[in-house]
Amino acid sequence: MSQAILTRFEAARSVVRDAAALAMKMRPAPGGPKGTQKSAQDWLTETDGAVEAFISERIGTLFPEDGFQGEEEGRTRTGTLRWVVDPIDGTSNYARGRNRWCISLGLMDGDTPVAGIIEAPMLGETYTAVKGHGAFLNGERIHASPVTDPATSLIEMGWSNRVPPGVFQEKIDAILNLGAMPRSGGSGAIALAEVACGRQDGYLEIRINLWDVAAALVLLEEAGAKVSPFLRDGGLEDGIHILAAAPGIADALSQAVGVSLK
């Protein structure tokens, strides 16, 4: 991995840390949702825009030749190296004063994810990875779960209002039929990071976007998890499905939910 990417990664860690402090300062108290809806159950808060603008400005100052893409403003700069940010992943949780949300910042070299940072400040956790250099949680190396029996596994599935309810129920039933324990936590980036660190054994979402997964894809690869070909299958330009799994149950889970890992 080039020194240019390692230099950017180290600088980005500081940028994300400061962005997390801003999000913490702006976080709402527990209670009813604080924000507006882009569509049913798809929340937007003032913090989403503020954090994205903060990261864009800082990265642009540090690396003006780099591209930048955010969930809220889209692609605002172009470059071979491109930063992809979800300013608040888990906005529905954040808007209600819950803890399971994060800032996700990935770096791509062309179409290849090469570095990622996922910071969940209310959980006190920072996931980091650089391609070829391993994956880490709070500085400690992480690996995907060693589980090999689906009946002992914990699988999370993300919910989206863009997916028909019947499809969600069908996939949940398939997970239950494996004997696995289902979960749904409201943050795709954290869920994928937890597959990387072995806290859970799989994550499925039927429609998810690049900004949700750009940082996590590097984590998963470096941690030894199996992942569906998100980028190859259209994830660079549109929301599509993703499946990530511990190697020992990957084939069984893939067959059960009908999502290829090849």
Rank of each mutant, 00 (worst) to 15 (best):
G31A: 10
S104I: 14
D111I: 05
T36C: 04
V85I: 15
G70H: 05
G70N: 04
S104K: 11
T126V: 15
G79Y: 13
Q41A: 13
Q41K: 15
D48I: 03
F54M: 03
V114H: 08
R27T: 11
F68T: 00
V51D: 00
G124K: 09
E73Q: 15
A95P: 00
T126S: 14
G90P: 08
L123P: 05
G70V: 05
G35R: 07
L62K: 10
F54D: 02
R82G: 06
G35D: 06
N93D: 13
G106H: 15
A115W: 03
D111H: 07
E71K: 07
K34L: 08
A120I: 00
E52Y: 02
R77Q: 14
T80N: 12
M108R: 06
D42Y: 08
E71W: 03
D18V: 10
G132I: 05
I55A: 06
E65G: 15
W83F: 11
V16D: 07
G90H: 05
R75T: 14
G132N: 06
M108F: 13
P64R: 06
T47Q: 07
Q37N: 12
P30Q: 02
V51T: 07
I88F: 02
T47N: 05
M108W: 06
R96I: 10
I88S: 00
T78Y: 09
E52K: 03
D48W: 02
V114P: 00
P64E: 13
S56Q: 10
Y94C: 09
P121Q: 12
S56G: 05
E71I: 04
G67M: 09
M108N: 08
R58A: 11
W43R: 11
T36G: 13
I88Q: 00
A120E: 09
E72H: 03
R27V: 08
S92Y: 00
I55K: 09
M26K: 12
W83L: 07
G106S: 13
L107E: 01
M24N: 10
G49C: 04
E125M: 13
R96P: 07
L123K: 14
A23K: 00
D42T: 11
D89F: 01
A50K: 01
G110E: 14
A23Q: 02
I103V: 14
A95M: 04
Q37P: 10
G60T: 10
E65Q: 14
A29D: 09
R27M: 13
G79N: 10
A23R: 01
R98Q: 12
D111M: 08
R27H: 13
E71Q: 08
R27P: 01
K131Y: 05
N93F: 03
T126M: 14
T128W: 01
H133Y: 07
S92V: 01
D48K: 07
A19Q: 06
D18G: 09
A20V: 15
M26T: 07
S56C: 11
Y94R: 10
Q37V: 14
R77N: 08
L123E: 14
V114Y: 01
K25M: 09
T36N: 10
I103K: 03
R77E: 09
L44Y: 06
T36R: 14
V51H: 01
T47W: 00
E52Q: 04
T76V: 15
A29W: 10
D48F: 00
A50S: 11
D48P: 05
D18A: 09
V114D: 06
T128Y: 00
F68R: 03
E57C: 11
P121K: 03
E65T: 14
K34P: 02
G32L: 15
T128S: 01
